[in-house]
């Protein structure tokens, strides 16, 4: 299994150093939490890893493959999916359509099969079944035909997770998957993350909720001022007073 690593990544916005020589190697599987105060560079790190931002220096590797300059859709096709802090969904279409959209390698998205409709109906049936399976996994199967925009905030977060899963990515980069969500749903989402870890996926999530991090993370990566200032198991990292001070401060 490929490991996701980055080496001395730097990125600045108008003179503000968002990432400064960041080097991290995530475990091949498991749950890694990225924590740190606002503006620490957590989201920038995800944006660089997924190709939405180009770093000024450094590189990202997935296994032996350099992915630093790949377009976002190519990185997604390698099996690295992500969610966004501001929920991104196609609001007007159904929950099911959102998930079906995310299915990988669709023949019907190519020009000739789309025009001639060769094998597209069968593929759609398969994709619909797979999408329903994913919706059952996150507990949204009863909402399948509702417009995505009508879901509650927490349900929309579940749906973005379902879309990530539907891409069949092995690496999931989740930007605040439980922020602003009802406590019961936090438990539900954390439970899903555990199950995904058990299936061998790597989950990297940005989170401010330390209790949630403590509950599920195998590794904690602490960022501050665009740098990684600590990493290790939560039992060790979260006990260090200087870390908690930086985080709270």
């Amino acid at each position: 299994m490929e490991t996701l690593c980055c080496e001395s990544l730097s990125k600045s916005f108008d003179g503000v150093q968002a990432l400064e020589k960041v080097g991290v190697c995530f475990p091949t599987s498991g749950i890694a939490a990225v924590i740190g105060p606002n503006g620490a560079g957590k989201t920038t790190l995800i944006n660089v890893l997924t190709g939405f931002l180009r770093p000024e220096a450094g590189r990202c590797l997935f296994g032996n493959r350099e992915i630093t300059r790949l377009a976002p859709h190519r990185i997604a096709r390698l099996g690295i999916a992500r969610t966004f802090q501001d929920l991104r969904l196609i609001q007007q279409v159904s929950v099911l359509d959102n998930v079906m959209l995310a299915r990988p390698n669709q023949r019907g998205e190519r020009l000739l099969p789309a025009l001639l409709r060769f094998g597209v109906a069968e593929e759609e049936t398969r994709n619909r079944e797979e999408a329903m399976r994913t919706l059952r996994f996150v507990g949204l199967e009863e909402k399948a035909s509702d417009p995505a925009g009508e879901l509650s905030y927490g349900q929309q977060k579940l749906l973005t997770l379902a879309c990530c899963l539907a891409t069949e990515a092995r690496v999931l980069l989740l930007d605040e998957p439980v922020a602003g969500v009802h406590p019961e749903m936090v438990e539900q989402i954390l439970g899903l993350l555990r199950r995904l870890r058990d299936e061998g996926k790597l989950i990297v999530f940005i989170e401010h909720d330390i209790a949630a991090v403590r509950q599920v993370a195998d590794v904690v990566i602490v960022m501050d001022n665009g740098q990684v200032i600590a990493q290790g198991p939560p039992s060790e990292v979260l006990e260090r007073p200087e870390i908690m001070e930086a985080y709270v401060g």
Binding site: T50, F52, A71, P72, H73, A76, R77, A81, R82, F84, R88, L89, I90, Q91, Q92, V93, D97, M100, L101, A102, P104, Q106, R107, G108, E109, R110, L111, A114, R117, V120, E123, E124, N127, C163, C164, A166, T167
Partner: peptide, 24 residues
């Protein structure tokens, strides 16, 4: 069908479309 679904996704949210592997 799938082609139109992808087009509509690109129209509505190109960033999302790219993040799930669509070559917008």
């Amino acid at each position: 069908g799938p082609f139109g679904r992808a087009l509509h996704a690109i129209r509505e949210d190109e960033v999302l479309a790219k993040s799930i592997g669509k070559n917008a």
